[in-house]
Simulated scan of single mutants.
Amino acid sequence: MKRIHVAAAVIYDAAGRILLARRPEDKHQGGLWEFPGGKVEEGEPVEAALARELEEELGIRVEQARPLIQVSHDYPDKRVLLDVWEVTAFSGEAHGAEGQPLAWVTPRELGNYEFPAANRPIVRAAQLPRQYLITPDNLEPAALLKGLKAALAAGIRLVQLRAPNLFSPEYRDLAVDAVGLCAGKAQVMLKGPLEWLGDFPAAGWHLTAEQLRQYAPNGRPFPRERWLAASCHNAEELALAAQMGVDFVTLSPVQPTATHPEAVPLGWDAARELIAGFNQPVFLLGGVGPEDAERAGRIGAQGVAGIRAFWPT
């Protein structure tokens, strides 16, 4: 069965809302909501296909777009490759030119809509930022919270609370403060034993590679309403992350890094190949900074993650 290549768009308005369209009842996956787009014709550049489809379906002209994520999915009766782009500027007023109902929703509200299975990773990618801040080692809790407050003021929306120098009780106390500080501003991803999950219902969890190997055969440890991530370094770990149903991963190290000088870097080309076989959002980590976010996007990554290059000085 030939894989159908589809160009799809996560379209933002000036208020940061995302445009959804509902599929006709008589079509494949009819009645479900989707991100607008359509089939890429043979030999047609994806960006051209996206612009054509959005003008035909919605009456808008794309002015600014960049790659977001690629998702391969096999339905019982159809195989698709969704080539998803983020559209941040367009002209014209979006309307259902083919009679399809439309809805403008906030990223948080995406969870209230029912999508085809192939769209689920797109929902997560649309809800995630381009930068993932990891807190540095060897800071006193007060200094760490002060830096975190500054990072939030600078626009950070996704934070991993990494504090390996602290004992468990100290980390748990710090986690309570960090989750409270970030409430309504950023998603906090904690690290630690899964036995702590029930104590931090508002937090997501970022698994180490060792935890991933231990728990992946058991599947996802909590419902999809909570964020789940994992640290990956190779194709085997990415496969385990997919098996576990994580929402996103970090892939590292891309470049040489002072945090792990002994680790052999993947390089950008190998990172591109690994991302191409993985259907969830990927943050590149190790020797990268905010200035590398666009390059990361061009090879299929969600964005970049880091400690030193992201921490406010």
Rank of each mutant, 00 (worst) to 15 (best):
L158Y: 07
L152H: 03
A163F: 01
L128I: 03
Y132E: 13
L148C: 04
L166E: 01
V159R: 00
E140I: 00
N165F: 10
T135W: 01
E140V: 01
L139I: 06
L148I: 05
R130L: 13
N138H: 08
K149I: 09
P164A: 11
A142K: 07
P141I: 03
L128R: 00
N165D: 13
L148P: 02
L145N: 04
A151M: 14
G155W: 10
F167H: 15
L161K: 02
P129L: 00
R162M: 07
N138D: 08
Q160L: 05
L145D: 08
N165P: 05
A153Y: 12
A142T: 12
L161H: 02
L139Y: 09
R162Q: 09
P141G: 08
R130W: 06
A142N: 11
A163M: 03
V159C: 04
G155P: 06
P141Q: 10
A143Q: 14
P129I: 00
K149A: 07
L139P: 03
G147F: 12
P141D: 06
A153G: 13
P141V: 04
A163H: 02
Y132L: 12
P136N: 01
L133D: 05
I156F: 07
G147N: 11
V159P: 02
A143R: 12
I156N: 09
R130S: 15
E140F: 07
L133Q: 02
A142C: 10
A143N: 10
K146P: 03
A154P: 08
T135P: 01
P129G: 09
A150R: 15
S168N: 15
Q131E: 10
K149N: 07
A154D: 09
P141K: 03
A153F: 13
A150M: 15
T135L: 05
L139N: 04
L133A: 08
L133N: 07
A143G: 12
Q131I: 02
L158A: 12
P164Q: 11
I134K: 00
L158W: 01
E140G: 09
R157C: 09
Q160N: 10
S168F: 08
S168M: 15
A154W: 06
R157Q: 11
A153N: 14
L144C: 06
L145Y: 04
A153W: 13
I134L: 06
Y132I: 04
I134G: 08
G155K: 11
A143M: 12
K146H: 12
F167Q: 15
L166H: 00
A142V: 13
N138R: 10
F167G: 15
R162K: 11
K149R: 13
L161V: 13
Y132Q: 04
A154M: 10
P164N: 08
L148Y: 05
A143K: 12
Q131D: 09
I156K: 11
E140H: 05
N138P: 04
L144H: 03
D137A: 00
L139K: 08
N138W: 06
L152S: 04
P129C: 06
A150S: 13
A151K: 14
N138F: 11
A154C: 06
A153P: 11
L128F: 01
L148A: 01
R157N: 11
A142D: 13
L152Y: 01
Y132R: 06
V159G: 07
L128N: 04
L152Q: 05
N165W: 10
S168A: 15
Q160F: 05
S168L: 15
A150I: 14
P129N: 05
L166M: 13
A143P: 09
K149H: 09
G147S: 11
D137H: 02
I156M: 12
I134S: 05
T135F: 03
P164S: 14
L158S: 12
